Amino acid sequence: MATILVPVNAAATPAVSRIAVLDWGWAESLLALGVQPTAVAEAPLYGDRVVVPALSSETIDLGLRSWPNMELLRSLKPDLILAQAGYGVSQARLNEIAPTLALPLYSAERMPLVAAEAALKEIAARTGREEAAIDYLQRAHARLETIAAKAKAYDGRPLLIIKFTDDRLIDIYGEGGLFDDVLKRLGIVNAWDGATNNWGFATAGLDAIARYPEARLIIIEPGPPGRFLQSTLWQSLPAVRKGHVATIPPTWVFGAFPSAMRFAEVIREGIGIA
């Protein structure tokens, strides 16, 4: 996999030093700017779901992203709180603790990659990391262009991107999601043409996979429990019978710009783009 994009001036001191983050997308964005947050909601799970860029082992866990430990948050006396607009605790209530930047990511506009870039720039402006943001985004866009150029050699088979919720239900990622935005940038077709919610996915049964027999199936780890992938039901699906299945490492489906870059890299490897 390509080297993770990290700003060359990551060691510089940010304009604000104690930052509490209630959304993993903003945590990874802050890390991409070379700033380690003081506290992050559900910090122990971040490494499993988001993976990179990595949080410091000293990061304080603030509890649930949807409902953090408000007493702990207040006791930390942060200089800044980063939250996702329209999710979890209201900005008005968070402002009672510390100045809060609540930014949109997944919304009715359904353009998360554009929103993620705008948010990264806004976080950079608020933390005095504008040059780091310019550096990061320049290299990120150049990398996306490189992968897109190499993707022209791909066989053109549409991708059906799924994540198991159990051994019978899957989330399928399509229009309005971060991964769909990345596929568009890479010139790769997303097979899913069904309806999706504001987060860019639909929940369906395995019969949905069977409706796309020519697609290449992309499974986001972790896969289903037990030996389900060896079951007769799974093996009967057209894409499975034809060997058109690839598994990619955990990648945060509701992430921001760094998650978009991770997805571009893991999908490149998953479908064999050199």
Rank of each mutant, 00 (worst) to 15 (best):
L206T: 01
A195P: 13
Y212L: 13
E214R: 13
A239I: 06
I218Y: 06
V240M: 06
G226I: 15
R211T: 14
A239S: 14
K242E: 09
F228S: 00
A204D: 14
A195G: 15
G223D: 01
P222G: 14
A210S: 12
F228E: 00
L233H: 08
T196H: 03
S231E: 08
P224R: 12
R216K: 15
V189Q: 08
A210C: 08
A239H: 05
L206F: 08
L217G: 02
I220A: 07
V240A: 07
W199K: 00
I220N: 04
A202V: 02
G194C: 10
S231W: 09
G223W: 00
W234E: 02
R241G: 06
N197I: 05
E221Q: 15
Y212P: 04
P222Y: 14
L229T: 04
E221C: 11
A210P: 05
L206V: 05
Q230V: 01
T232R: 10
A210M: 06
S231H: 11
R227E: 14
A208C: 10
G223K: 00
R241D: 08
T196D: 07
W199T: 02
L229M: 11
I218L: 11
E214H: 12
P222V: 14
V240Q: 04
N198P: 04
Q230G: 05
K242R: 11
L229K: 03
F228C: 01
F201V: 05
G194D: 05
V189M: 01
L217K: 03
D207C: 00
R216G: 04
F201I: 01
V240I: 07
W234R: 01
T196A: 05
D207W: 02
A215K: 04
F228Y: 11
R211E: 10
V240G: 06
L237S: 08
T232F: 05
P222I: 13
D207G: 09
A215L: 07
R241F: 08
L233D: 07
G226P: 06
Q230P: 01
F228H: 04
A208S: 12
R216A: 06
Q230I: 00
V189I: 07
Q235T: 13
L229P: 02
G205F: 13
E221Y: 12
G226C: 11
R216Q: 15
I218E: 09
D207Y: 04
G200V: 00
T203L: 04
N190W: 06
R211S: 14
D193W: 05
W192E: 01
T196P: 02
I220Q: 07
F201E: 00
V240L: 06
G205C: 11
I219R: 09
Q235W: 12
I219F: 04
E221L: 14
N190G: 05
I219G: 00
G200M: 02
Q230M: 08
I220H: 06
P224Y: 13
L229R: 04
G194K: 12
Y212D: 10
Q235S: 14
W234A: 02
I209V: 08
R211I: 07
E214S: 11
L233A: 10
S236P: 11
S231I: 09
N197H: 13
S236G: 14
L217M: 02
E221K: 15
P224E: 10
L217D: 00
G223Q: 04
I209L: 03
G223C: 02
